[in-house]
Amino acid sequence: MLRGYSKFLDVLEKVEKAILAVTVGIMVIIIAYQVIMRYIFAHANSWSEELARYLFIYDVMIGAAIAIRRNSHLQIDILINLMKPKVRTILTIIATLAGMVFMVFLLSYSITLVQTGARTMSAGLGIPMSIPYSCMPVGIVLMLLTSIEVLFKNISALRGAGKEAQV
């Protein structure tokens, strides 16, 4: 079960990474284009910086999901490093569950935000704000999917008595 789910997440992560690689490249090109237009052609536009910003926030939400899988979100681990592996695993499970509760709330209100954004236009691109806001529910769903894996990996580690969780 868990192995199949992890394989699914592997595939998903490949797609996410492809999106990140392409959009980061686009962000660099957009800002470089903006510099060239401004200093060589003395022409400003209101869309380029905004487009780069919205791509950036999308990337942050996707990158945050990948970081959950890699366990690379910032944390203070001095106290838990002093604890027994089993206690540490239990705390990880609780933290993951708490994160998921938070994400479920965040998800439901993100959907409201996307709906609210339908009546607002962005200042530069003139697109409905729903489009950039959609990074919130999309990213949170991805974060929830990866959190589920972390949760079950830790639970099964807890079952494998005495063995330390390998996340």
Partner: peptide
């Protein structure tokens, strides 16, 4: 060709483009 700071809003940028200036958000 006057380089002028403007808010990053289409409405303001258009004013200065109409003037022939170089608005910079």
């Amino acid at each position: 060709g006057f380089k002028l700071r403007s808010p990053n809003l289409e409405g303001y940028i258009k004013v200065w483009e109409w003037m022939g200036s170089a608005p910079t958000p």
